[in-house]
């Protein structure tokens, strides 16, 4: 059974995403809402990772391989300025989107296993990930015209 592989992948991805949210929040501390909401969303990622941990451990007994990392090619440190903010948020968006599809796939596996505890965790996480995506999309859509057309 390969579920453990995906659970590990997703657990790592949540950790990486949390770290990226914190880095972007720190780098753009002058954007008060970005700083505040990135910190908030990093905590959400931590919570999701913690909720996943027991399941990753439980299913790891069936597949002990160390999983590879999701989106290792994305996000290599925060940028500066209005355009930099847009690029950083876009990186966060893509990282979150990878988590999003990963939650869906893990959710499918949980259904197949009839693991209702895991299904509950995933339902909540998937909903929270959708909000994360929606926020990033909202914020980028608001920032894009000024950053791409107006600012010199």
């Amino acid at each position: 059974m390969h579920l453990a592989h995906y659970l590990g992948l997703l657990h790592r991805a949540q950790d990486t995403l949390a770290a990226a949210f914190r880095e972007v929040g720190d780098a753009h501390a002058d954007e008060a809402d970005i700083a505040h909401l990135c910190t908030q969303q990093a905590k959400r990622c931590d919570e999701r990772a913690a909720a996943l941990r027991p399941f990753a451990d439980r299913y790891a007994e069936d597949a002990p391989d160390e999983p590879e990392r999701l989106h290792s090619e994305l996000f290599r440190g925060a940028r500066t300025g209005g355009l930099g903010l847009l690029r950083d948020l876009q990186d966060l968006y893509l990282m979150t989107a990878e988590c999003d599809i990963c939650w869906i796939l893990v959710g499918q596996a949980a259904e197949a296993l009839r693991d209702t505890d895991l299904i509950d965790v995933i339902d909540e996480a998937a909903a929270a990930t959708a909000v994360q995506l929606a926020w990033l999309r909202t914020r980028m859509k608001q920032a894009a015209p000024q950053a791409l057309v107006v600012a010199r």
Partner: peptide
């Protein structure tokens, strides 16, 4: 109408950044 209107704090931020 491409996004919500720019709220006051963001207007001041754009002024701070010079755009």
């Amino acid at each position: 109408h491409w996004s919500p209107p720019t709220h006051a704090m963001q207007i001041w931020r754009y002024a701070e950044q010079g755009s």
